[in-house]
């Protein structure tokens, strides 16, 4: 059982929805992002999604693109990202961390070596945007064998015929992408998302978490209400980008998690 599985068991017992927050590792610099990550559990975050910066984030909107560039310009690397996770784990051994990014930095490191290092650092799961089920042999299967969750994205274009393929070999939770589009784009309509979540839940026992386009406590509440939880990324990253201090960012995160937890 990973920290992710344990967290969902705990939330289920409490009858609570999950609030998942995304920030980019090293944005705007190592120390600031570490301070934010350390503060997330206290701000009501159940699962931390940590972005691994990449030069070519094809599924991300401008907010997260620029966050990645800031991190890279500040000297962020895969090693430094793992170092950030280790630093967080010194004070928190329960909050799950999901590393989210693209395949090339991982492939460049070497899959076996990366998995050893990620596991040792205290990462619990991976979301790798450019690895669909068709490429499961690359990282998904080795990651599961290494005891990490491999969390897959399901999208509005994933029809019923394809859904079983997406759900096979998925673990931890299913991340439902609420819109066709990139991160930080248009807000999803809860009434559009609800039947999609039901469609997925009909085929899996895994929790279904919805992300993309959620920016406000109200939206977090509405979306979490029709799923097992929600993810907010770009809205938090925007706060950091606009120069807000760590405390201000964390209080914004708290307002979002309160929203989700009201659901």
């Amino acid at each position: 059982m990973t920290r992710i599985d344990a967290k969902f068991a705990e939330l289920k017992d409490q009858g609570r929805k999950a609030f998942v927050s995304y920030i980019m590792a090293g944005d705007p610099d190592f120390d600031t992002s570490l301070a934010v990550v350390k503060g997330l559990p206290g701000a009501g975050v159940d699962i931390i999604e940590l972005g691994l910066p990449f030069t070519d984030p094809m599924a991300d909107g401008p907010t997260i693109q620029v966050a990645g560039q800031r991190a890279l310009e500040g000297g962020m690397t895969l090693d430094r990202t793992l170092e950030l996770v280790r630093a967080f784990r010194q004070g928190d051994d329960t909050t799950p961390i999901v590393l989210m990014g693209y395949y090339n930095p991982i492939y460049s490191r070497g899959v076996a070596k990366f998995l050893d290092q990620a596991k040792a650092a205290g990462i619990d799961g991976l979301i790798v945007v450019d690895l669909p089920p068709e490429e499961d042999d690359e990282l998904c299967l080795p990651a599961q064998a290494a005891g990490l969750n491999f969390i897959r994205l399901a999208t509005p274009t994933t029809d019923d015929r394809r859904l079983p393929k997406v759900l096979t070999n998925t673990s931890g939770f299913v991340y439902y992408v609420s819109i066709t589009g990139i991160t930080g784009a248009a807000a999803p309509e809860p009434s559009d998302v609800a039947p999609e979540v039901a469609r997925i839940k009909a085929q899996t026992d895994l929790p279904v978490i919805v992300g993309f386009g959620i920016r406000t406590p109200e939206a977090a509440e509405a979306i979490a209400g029709i799923a097992d939880g929600c993810v907010v990324g770009s809205a938090i990253v925007s706060e950091l980008a606009s120069g807000r201090g760590v405390e201000e960012v964390l209080s914004f995160v708290k307002s979002l998690s309160d929203g989700a937890h009201r659901a």
Partner: peptide
């Protein structure tokens, strides 16, 4: 059938694009 030339090629895209 997986779009590979030896080890090269493949279908490394996000799920949204996969059905397309």
């Amino acid at each position: 059938e997986n779009g590979r030339f030896g080890d090269f090629g493949g279908r490394f895209v996000s799920e949204t694009l996969m059905p397309l």
